[in-house]
């Protein structure tokens, strides 16, 4: 049971890092970004490569993951999504474009994994990384628990401070709400959005660092987190940043606890993804504003 709770918390931390970025990209470009899972994987391989080269723990390589994820996301904004948005591409066109971006990233990582395995002589597919253990309040917990929680907390709080306590953040929220008015006030909307995309990608990249400590990893692993992350956004209420974070913990914990419960009844835990898929469909149909309807009218 402790294992389940630990797993749920770590998983929710990572979902929160993804979901807030997905929300930010939805708000800025109206795109449901299907490439965001692959940005996670980019962070994973960036940190993994750095840790092999520098002979340090992958945890020490989080900055590389932040940078790699941020850059990939920024490039996708500058080269694909911003031009498409300006050309008047609708949300589904942008979504299709994001699937293409995701495929380019994913299969580039597949190719990179081959190269990395050859040149660095480490496993780059179907691998897990060994974690250290900690004594916390008399319980033995894996290091990924406090570290992922700390990372998620620091990054999310920083993002909050940026958005609500700095002029740049106010400008970003303003540009999201009314780009034309923002532009007429002298805000460089494209630059502000680009910063938002870099941050979204950086957060996703950071999430990637922790994945190999929990699941068997390969270049497809981030993609498999995408729909649960979308479930977090939907459950939290589309368009609400705070909702996405809340949604991530609701989805993360319900996935693990429900599948644990069902497992005790003899249902295979392999059905676990159904929980978040069902959450997407049910929330959209029954309560489209999700959790955010609890605090906003």
């Amino acid at each position: 049971m402790l294992d389940v709770l630990v797993g749920a918390l770590v998983y929710s931390n990572l979902l929160a890092l993804l979901a807030i970025g997905l929300s930010l990209m939805l708000l800025t470009c109206r795109v449901s970004n299907f490439a965001h899972g692959d940005v996670v994987t980019t962070g994973l391989y960036a940190a993994y490569t750095a840790s092999v080269l520098l002979r340090v723990s992958p945890y020490a390589c989080i900055p590389f993951a932040l940078l790699a994820g941020g850059l990939v996301s920024l490039l996708s904004f500058l080269l694909v999504f911003d031009p498409l948005r300006r050309a008047g591409g609708g949300p589904v066109t942008l979504m299709v474009a994001s699937m293409a971006v995701g495929i380019i990233i994913r299969y580039s990582l597949h190719a990179y994994a081959d190269v990395m395995q050859r040149t660095l002589g480490v496993y780059t597919r179907q691998f897990v990384l060994s974690d250290f253990e900690l004594q916390l309040a008399g319980l033995r917990v894996p290091g990924v628990l406090p570290l992922s929680s700390l990372t998620a907390a620091v990054l999310l709080v920083s993002l909050y401070v940026l958005l609500y306590r700095t002029r740049l953040g106010v400008a970003m929220r303003a540009a999201i709400e009314n780009p034309q008015l923002a532009e007429s006030l002298g805000i460089d909307v494209k630059r502000v959005f680009a910063i938002g995309w870099f941050l979204s990608g950086a957060l996703a990249g950071a999430a990637g660092v922790f994945l190999p400590f929990r699941v068997i990893s390969d270049p497809d692993v981030g993609w498999s987190m995408l729909l649960p992350a979308f479930a977090s956004v939907v459950v939290g209420g589309i368009g609400s940043l705070a909702g996405s974070v809340a949604g991530a913990y609701v989805v993360g914990f319900s996935e693990l606890l429900l599948s644990y419960l069902l497992a005790t009844l003899g249902v295979s835990t392999a059905y676990r993804p159904l929980i978040s898929f069902a959450a997407i469909v049910a929330t959209l149909l029954l309560r489209p504003k999700g959790l955010s309807s609890l605090w906003s009218r």
Binding site: R30, S32, G90, P91, V92, M95, L227, F230, A231, V234, I238, S268, A270, Y271, P273, L274, S276, F277, A278, I280, V281, L284, L285, P288
Partner: peptide
């Protein structure tokens, strides 16, 4: 759902449904 959802939400809902079918079939 096609009548009730915005087009991009519909797309996500249908993708989730499609993946559900696959998850059930593979298990």
């Amino acid at each position: 759902p096609a009548l009730r959802l915005r087009e991009d939400h519909l797309a996500i809902a249908l993708i989730a449904f499609s993946e559900s079918v696959r998850v059930v079939a593979r298990n």
